[in-house]
Nucleic acid binder design. Structure first.
Lengths: 135, 135
DNA sequence: CTTAACCTTATCGTTAACGTAAAGGTTGGT
DNA sequence: ACCAACCTTTACGTTAACGATAAGGTTAAG
């Protein structure tokens, strides 16, 4: 059992962030003492890490709230699972779309790099030390 | 030449958004009348669309500002191009990281779907109409 | 039992990316 | 010349995701 500051540090966030996530229903302390102290078990780390990852790729905390439980809740009531399935499929599609957009952006960037490198090496051959693109 | 409302509509944003983008240096009207009216050419649409795409995959307008010109400015001064190249490479890496995170999230979601579907079909064989997962 | 280092709730502040009026000028068709 | 439908700048409001105090209680080591 970790206190909020300890697990926050390990997760690379602040206690404030964890309380905020709790307020949004993203996480719950494994135990709360009679004095109000929050205590967490180590597996909460995995959840926080996943939240950070999903955030980093552009999901809002609200969207994350909808799916975060799905990763870590294999012991849910069965009827809930079917709903879950539908949502998983939907979310999977959204992720696929984002991946495709990123890949498109990526290849276009790569194209720009290539074009620019060619122009630079053509016009700067005299002062060129290295023999062109190494990507 | 389109007025701001026309091009905004075509791009699926509001005039306010375009003025805000202009303020951040993301776009510039092709022409501004003496009375202050902004006029845009059609190719501005491509820029706005790209901004929206990049936003949708999680880039901030500030990050977008750094790269948006790179897509559409092949007539820049040469010395600027070298800086550009460095930034392009950096940004390309970031995009790669995000793609990998999304793909990881995706495969984990897919795993959850599979597990859940198996459990459902095992426990619900009696009432099952369709023959299992079709992904 | 003292004390530093933690924790609590409560509240106000901040940045990003616009939305939403307010008050007025412009355009373009009749 | 008129008016609806646009445009302008200015400025305050809003949501998201926390940060930063403030004022006070708790823990655990010595």
């Amino acid at each position: 059992m970790y206190k909020i500051g300890e697990i926050a540090k390990q997760a690379g966030v602040t206690p404030r962030t964890l309380r905020y996530y709790e307020q949004l229903g993203l996480i719950t302390p494994s135990e709360v003492s009679t004095t109000g102290y929050r205590y967490y078990e180590e597996d909460t780390l995995a959840i926080i890490t996943r939240i950070r990852n999903l955030k980093h790729v552009g999901l809002t905390l609200d969207e994350i709230k909808d799916v975060i439980g799905l990763y870590f809740t294999l012991k849910k009531p069965l009827e809930a699972k079917e709903k879950t399935l539908v949502y998983l499929d939907k979310h999977l599609n959204e992720i696929n779309v984002k991946i495709k957009m990123l890949q498109k952006a990526k290849s276009e960037l790569q194209e720009q790099i290539n074009v620019t490198q060619q122009r630079l090496s053509q016009l700067g051959v005299k002062g060129q030390k290295n023999g062109g693109p190494k990507n």
